[in-house]
């Protein structure tokens, strides 16, 4: 079974929002697999289904049809509670808005998924997790006392500490300035290189995509192309091309 070599795979993934004449197909039969220890960027114009794909993979939304396989296990039909536990235990999530809990300190935010699972994070593990993102001196600070880049690094530490099967990042640099964004991207890259952390990142930024091993382009809910060893310029050129494609399609 090829599945076992993949941290994550989706087969025939379709997601339809609404019904009848007003129905919108966000994803149409998407097949993708993500090998362990790889960094993949998902790109495409607005409305191409990037974020829906991530939501379906994370169990935030249930696909209309198709399968999501996490480490070879079909999680598609799992109920709400089971998908929540999967998200907590097997998936690390980094959001554009950081999604830190405002009344928890940096360290408490990092420890939160484990606490929700009824576990505690040891002092040494916490020290290492914060050290990895360069925030060991900020453990006790509340998010309001941290800069945007620091908050996103806390969120990355939170996503990594559980050694998830896959780290999903939804526009992780969307709310950051370009210098801070580069730090955050370098951090994600180092997690892939040093921890062999499988990472899937949705982005619209060609520079961000250039940190990945491979770029998958989505157009109108379908995979329209792939690029390995991407550079920012090549990605930008391809995106411009995709915009033309969607223009023709409509």
């Amino acid at each position: 079974m090829a599945d076992h070599t993949h941290a994550l795979a989706v087969e025939g993934l379709t997601k339809r929002h609404g019904s009848g004449a007003g129905a919108v197909d966000a994803l149409v039969g998407v097949d993708l697999s993500f090998a362990r220890g790889t960094f993949t960027a998902i790109m495409g114009p607005s409305g191409s289904g990037k974020s829906t794909l991530l939501s379906c993979v994370a169990g935030l939304e249930r696909p209309t049809s198709g399968r999501v396989l996490l480490e070879g296990t079909d999680v598609t039909s799992w109920d709400e509670a089971r998908r929540t536990r999967m998200r907590r235990d097997r998936i690390g999530f980094v959001f554009q808005d950081f999604s830190l809990i405002p009344y928890l300190s940096a360290a408490e935010n990092v420890a939160l998924p484990a606490r929700l699972a009824g576990r505690r994070v040891g002092a040494e593990a916490m020290r290492l997790a914060l050290e990895r993102v360069g925030l060991q001196s900020r453990a006790g600070h509340l998010p309001s006392a941290l800069s945007g880049g620091q908050q996103q690094r806390v969120a990355i530490a939170r996503a990594l500490i559980g050694q998830p099967a896959v780290l999903l990042a939804d526009e992780p640099t969307g709310a950051l300035d370009s210098a801070t964004a580069r730090d955050v991207l370098a951090l994600l890259r180092s997690a892939v290189d040093e921890l062999r952390q499988t990472t899937v990142m949705v982005t619209h930024d060609p520079v961000a995509a250039s940190y990945a091993d491979m770029v998958v382009f989505l157009v109108d809910g379908r995979v329209s192309g792939r690029m390995t060893a991407p550079t920012a310029d090549a990605v930008a050129a391809q995106l411009a091309h995709l915009d033309q494609l969607t223009g023709v399609a409509r």
């Binding site: 994370a58 935030l60 709400e80 509670a81 929540t84 536990r85 998200r87 907590r88 235990d89 999530f93 959001f95 999604s99 809990i101 405002p102 939160l112 998924p113 929700l116 699972a117 939170r158």
Partner: peptide, 12 residues
């Protein structure tokens, strides 16, 4: 905030 906690893995 509750929505955020749910996305992070807190069950209902």
């Amino acid at each position: 905030e509750l929505d955020r906690l749910w996305r992070l893995g807190a069950t209902s």
